[in-house]
Amino acid sequence: MLRTVRDQVRKHPGLVPQFFFICLGMSGAFLYLFRLARGPHVTWRKSSNPEPWNDLSPTYQYKFVAINTDYKNLKKDGPDF
């Protein structure tokens, strides 16, 4: 397969940026999925901590981008479990 790609790039050098941006997009998607898999709301071992989101403080910024929310001034509304 790599030989075919190499032959296509030699015949059509304009494909180099396309291959570059496709690889860049695929690596960015993989890194974002890896980030989502390690989030505070994901449980991989249910025996050690079945509900890890209960351990988070109200000031923990769990969103990737928080435009209108100031997490430093938030207070916990519910009871401790």
Rank of each mutant, 00 (worst) to 15 (best):
F20L: 10
R45K: 06
D80E: 13
F81T: 08
P40M: 05
E51H: 15
V5Q: 01
G39W: 05
D70G: 07
F21K: 11
Y62G: 15
S47G: 08
Q61F: 07
P58W: 00
C23L: 15
C23F: 13
F20P: 00
L36D: 00
P58S: 04
K11E: 05
S27P: 01
F19E: 02
G78K: 04
P40H: 09
W44M: 07
Q18C: 10
C23V: 13
K72F: 06
V16E: 01
Y32M: 11
V16S: 02
K72T: 15
A29Q: 05
V5N: 01
V5T: 09
F34L: 11
C23I: 14
D55H: 09
D55A: 15
P50I: 04
K63W: 10
Y32C: 14
F81M: 03
G28W: 09
K72I: 09
F34T: 12
K11V: 12
D80Q: 09
S57G: 13
L2H: 12
L24R: 14
F30P: 00
H41Q: 05
V5L: 08
S47Y: 01
Y62D: 04
A37L: 10
V42R: 07
G39C: 08
V65P: 02
F21E: 06
Q61M: 12
F81N: 06
P17A: 02
D55Y: 02
L33Q: 02
N49P: 03
D77W: 11
K75M: 03
G28K: 12
M26P: 04
L56S: 11
S57A: 15
M26I: 14
N54I: 13
W44I: 07
L31W: 06
R6G: 06
R6M: 09
P50D: 03
Y62P: 02
A29K: 05
T59D: 03
K76R: 12
P13W: 00
R35A: 10
V42P: 00
P52V: 04
F21W: 15
W53Y: 09
K75A: 07
V5A: 11
C23D: 11
N68G: 10
E51I: 14
S57V: 07
F21M: 10
P13R: 02
R6D: 08
N73W: 01
F21N: 04
S48H: 11
T4H: 06
S27E: 09
K75G: 04
D55G: 05
W44F: 10
S47I: 10
P52S: 03
L74F: 06
A37P: 02
V9G: 01
T4M: 11
E51V: 15
M26S: 10
M26Y: 13
S48A: 13
N54M: 13
Y32Q: 09
R3H: 13
H41F: 14
